[in-house]
């Protein structure tokens, strides 16, 4: 960080774009100074409407996000968007092509778009996605849209960080059986049949509705909504925004919001815990040649991965009496 944590934090809260952008980079790198800034920013976060946008490759997520930015801006709200694309497993590089569909907002001070490479992190997001959302909240964004990498069936992490989850489906992407599978179909609060001017749109709509109608629906729970859109022409966007806001109201009426917030915190705790533990252990092992020796010992059959980890944790995590008893 080019400045002290206190100054960085107050500049983020004032909406200084360059400091915000730099902080996001440092969070991606797991930088220690960024953590100090986040401690100060944390109380200023958690108030935005957070909307996840997931669905298959080419289903139109980026174009939908572009239209949603426009629609929320017309309602006078400041909008952030975190858009994630995959990193190459070979080079580690990435071609981040989501922003290009949203460039018309580039003169609008009330919009902040950030592209992120997944950097090998699974689940459809990047490691620093949830922290980047927090930074956007701290800088005053009232709505934060989160676009996942869009590979397919199992990228369901977005449900942990966003209150409302949109699942985008394009016609021709499978029959009712696809819609009955676990994963994506279970996380949607709003299902979007995009490109609904194409052949097969009605079948896709029916398939999703049929699958949803088979779901058990206890009293008082949100019943997923299906909305048809043509994002390229802006059709169906108003209805989609109404569905998002209706879900937000539903959350606020019951205990949903409390649950969504607690889920998000639990997710963050898990991420930070794993990172810190790994950092402590690997810092301790660094330069000792132990890691190599452990690997060799496992390969030679002298020990196994479970015993090694127990041994390592025994060295680096001192046993202290539990403070909770």
């Amino acid at each position: 960080m080019p400045v002290a944590p206190e100054e960085a934090a107050s500049r983020v809260i004032e909406g200084d774009r360059r400091i915000c952008a730099r902080l996001m980079t440092l969070l991606e790198e797991g930088d220690g100074a960024a953590k100090e800034v986040m401690k100060l920013l944390y109380p200023h976060t958690g108030k935005a409407v957070t909307v996840g946008v997931t669905g298959g490759t080419g289903s139109g997520k980026s174009t939908l996000v572009d239209r949603l930015i426009q629609a929320f801006r017309e309602r006078g709200l400041k909008v952030g968007a975190v858009v994630v694309d995959p990193s190459s497993p070979f080079s580690g590089g990435a071609f981040l092509g989501d922003r290009l569909r949203m460039q018309r907002h580039s003169r609008d001070q009330g919009v902040f778009i950030r592209s992120m490479a997944s950097r090998g992190y699974l689940g459809g997001l990047a490691r620093a996605t949830s922290e980047t959302i927090r930074v956007m909240e701290a800088m005053g964004m009232e709505v934060v849209l989160v676009e996942t990498i869009g590979a397919g069936q199992d990228e369901v992490d977005v449900i942990q960080v966003a209150q409302t989850c949109l699942v985008v489906i394009a016609p021709g992407s499978g029959d009712e059986i696809q819609a009955l599978k676990a994963g994506l179909m279970e996380i949607g609060h709003v299902f979007v049949i995009n490109k609904s001017d194409l052949d097969g749109a009605l079948q896709a709509l029916r398939a999703v509705e049929a699958a949803l109608s088979l779901k058990g629906m206890p009293e008082g729970l949100w019943r997923p909504v299906v909305v048809s859109t043509v994002a390229t022409e802006g059709r169906g966007i108003d209805e989609l925004v109404r569905a998002i806001l209706a879900h937000r109201e539903h959350l606020e009426r019951g205990e949903g919001m409390e649950r969504a917030r607690s889920q998000r915190v639990e997710h963050e705790l898990g991420l930070i815990f794993r990172d810190e533990l790994e950092r402590i252990v690997f810092r301790g092992l660094k330069g000792t040649g132990m890691k190599k020796r452990y690997i060799q010992d496992i390969m030679d059959g002298r020990t196994d991965p479970y015993s090694v980890i127990e041994e390592i944790l025994g060295i680096f995590v001192k046993k202290r009496p539990s403070p909770w008893r």
Binding site: R17, R18, A21, R22, M24, T25, S87, G93, A94, F95, L96, G97, R99, L100, Q103, S106, R107, F112, I113, R114, S115, A117
Partner: peptide
């Protein structure tokens, strides 16, 4: 490298804004 591709028809302000927000 991580490449943010902006495509065509961009004006200098659009390109520089993207560079700022993307760091």
């Amino acid at each position: 490298m991580e490449v943010v591709y902006l495509g065509m028809y961009q004006m200098p302000e659009d390109i520089v804004r993207a560079a700022i927000d993307e760091d």
